[in-house]
Every structure is written in structure tokens, then in C-alpha cells.
Simulated assay, not measured.
Amino acid sequence: MRLRRSLVRLCLLAVGLSALAAPAAAQSVNRAAIDELNAQLLYVALPLALFVELTLVYAIYRFRDNDDPSPTVDDPALEITWTAATGAILVFVGISAFVVMANPYITPAAAQASTPGDAFADDHEVDVLAYQWGWEFSYPEANVTTEERLVIPANRNVTFRLRSADVIHAIYIPDLGVKQDIFPGRTLTARTHATEPGEYRLYCAELCGSGHSRMNATVVVKNQTAYDAWVENQTATAENRTATTESRIATAR
């Protein structure tokens, strides 16, 4: 009896600890949705895992000297109970996962297909070109192109139009919860809404050749004022380069 009470108390303790193990503040809407799903699954998985392990320990201790074990007695009520409980848990996990996968930031292609017109017409767009072994980022609104450095505004929806120049690549920004394979000959879509300005790492998550390990980039999230200033600076720099080049050509003639 005491052992059973101890098992119950330990299970309750596990539930309490899982509730306290809240993740740190997410840096984007995508990451927040993923972290919330992980937390929900943890609340279910941790008590179950602890219950199973403690039951195993109890069985080993209780029947350790049983040299003449008796057959297990059928208990239909118990079997129905654990089957129903397992079914309920699987339904909960399935619904939780479906809600996250239906999120337009996690699966933007599905959201685009189910919405007439351009569902992301008001988003800030960035054209992303992956190649062996680097990244090129173009900003149609500003007519600016950067390499190995992606700059986006915070607190604004951002859509990435993804293309590959050669083989299969995959854009992966762990801190922003962005991950999407990129196939040659197709334009894929990824989406995010960053909430915390800062610098984050971008990786290629698909083995793409001998230079795969160095196919990284930096993602810089700026507040809107800083982002606008960056765009103006990049535009002015590009215009100065163009003017200098034209001047040199004219002089050479």
C-alpha cells in the first residue's frame, strides 16, 4: 500500500516538474508554435514514462523471489481501460500535431493552396537562391542583393521564395523555426514572423556535396527603423557602385 502511494506521489511530482520546465521565450511565431507542441507532448510523455518505469521496478521487486509464478488473471475492465487511455492519448497527440502543421507559418504552401489569390500579398518578400555552396538573398522591394547574410524586419510577416541553382538544398534557421527543402526547377515557400531582434544562424540541412558543412549564413533581425536605414544604406551603396562603374566605362571610351 505504501509503495502504491509512493508511485502516485512520484507521478504527481513528475507532472509538477514538467509544468515548471517551460521553454525560454521563442524568437518567432514559428518557434513558439513548435515549442508549445513540444511542451504539450512533454506533459503527456513524462508522467507516462515515469509510470511505466516505476511499474517495472515494482514488478521486479514484488516478484523477485517467485519461483513458481502463476498465470496472469484476465481482467477485461483493466484491458479496456488501458486501451481507451492509449487511444485518447494518440488522439490528443494527433490533434496537437495537426494544429501545428496547419499553422500558415509552419506549412505556408498548404495555407496558400487553401486560400484564393495570394494569401501572403502583404508579407515582406525575400528571394533565396541556394547553390553549391552558398546563399544569395534578394530583396525585391529594395532592389538589393546580399550573400551569406540575410536581413529581415522584426514583428512583420516575411515570406521566402526559395530556389536552387543545382542540387537539393534545405534552408534551416533553428532559432526561428524555419526549415524547408529546396528542389531544383521549383520555387518553394517558407514563412516566418520574427519577434526578437538579433543574429541567428542559417544552415543547409540537406547533404549537397563536399562543401555542405560550410554552407552557412547569418540571419539578422532588425527592428523596422533599423531595417529601413539598412535598406537605404544598401541602396545608396549599390547606386554609387553603378555610377562609379559607368564613369569608368565612359572614361575608357
Rank of each mutant, 00 (worst) to 15 (best):
159 T>D: 01
164 S>P: 02
150 L>G: 05
149 R>D: 09
135 W>F: 06
141 E>I: 02
143 N>I: 03
142 A>Y: 14
134 G>C: 04
163 R>N: 03
143 N>R: 11
136 E>K: 15
154 A>T: 14
137 F>D: 00
145 T>S: 11
137 F>P: 03
150 L>K: 03
143 N>A: 13
152 I>R: 03
159 T>L: 09
153 P>Y: 13
162 L>Y: 00
161 R>T: 00
147 E>Q: 15
151 V>Q: 14
162 L>W: 00
147 E>N: 13
138 S>I: 02
167 V>T: 13
167 V>N: 12
161 R>Y: 02
138 S>Q: 07
138 S>H: 12
167 V>R: 13
149 R>A: 10
165 A>L: 11
138 S>N: 00
136 E>C: 04
150 L>C: 06
162 L>I: 00
138 S>M: 01
134 G>Y: 07
151 V>Y: 12
134 G>W: 05
144 V>F: 06
152 I>Q: 02
167 V>M: 10
166 D>W: 07
140 P>S: 08
155 N>S: 14
165 A>R: 10
153 P>D: 13
137 F>C: 03
163 R>V: 10
137 F>N: 01
153 P>S: 10
139 Y>T: 04
137 F>E: 01
156 R>P: 08
157 N>K: 14
160 F>I: 01
153 P>C: 11
141 E>C: 06
149 R>L: 15
158 V>M: 07
136 E>G: 02
147 E>Y: 11
157 N>R: 10
151 V>R: 12
158 V>S: 08
135 W>M: 06
167 V>Y: 09
141 E>G: 12
160 F>G: 00
159 T>S: 10
141 E>M: 04
150 L>N: 03
160 F>D: 00
134 G>F: 03
165 A>G: 14
158 V>L: 05
164 S>G: 09
156 R>M: 13
144 V>E: 08
144 V>H: 10
152 I>P: 02
139 Y>K: 02
142 A>C: 04
137 F>K: 01
152 I>H: 02
166 D>Y: 02
160 F>V: 01
147 E>F: 15
147 E>W: 13
146 T>K: 10
161 R>M: 01
140 P>V: 05
143 N>Q: 14
138 S>G: 04
135 W>G: 06
158 V>E: 03
135 W>Q: 02
154 A>W: 15
145 T>P: 05
149 R>G: 11
139 Y>Q: 05
164 S>E: 04
138 S>F: 09
136 E>Q: 12
155 N>M: 15
153 P>Q: 09
150 L>F: 05
163 R>M: 04
139 Y>V: 03
161 R>I: 00
160 F>Y: 03
153 P>I: 11
142 A>S: 13
164 S>M: 04
157 N>S: 14
157 N>I: 14
146 T>E: 10
160 F>H: 01
153 P>A: 15
140 P>Q: 02
151 V>L: 08
159 T>C: 05
135 W>Y: 06
156 R>A: 15
146 T>C: 07
150 L>H: 04
154 A>V: 14
134 G>E: 04
150 L>V: 02
140 P>C: 08
144 V>K: 09
150 L>R: 02
161 R>S: 01
162 L>N: 01
166 D>C: 09
165 A>W: 08
135 W>D: 02
166 D>P: 06
162 L>T: 00
139 Y>N: 05
151 V>W: 10
146 T>W: 04
141 E>R: 12
166 D>Q: 08
159 T>A: 09
141 E>K: 13
143 N>W: 07
139 Y>M: 05
162 L>R: 00
143 N>G: 12
138 S>Y: 11
167 V>L: 11
138 S>C: 01
156 R>Y: 06
167 V>P: 03
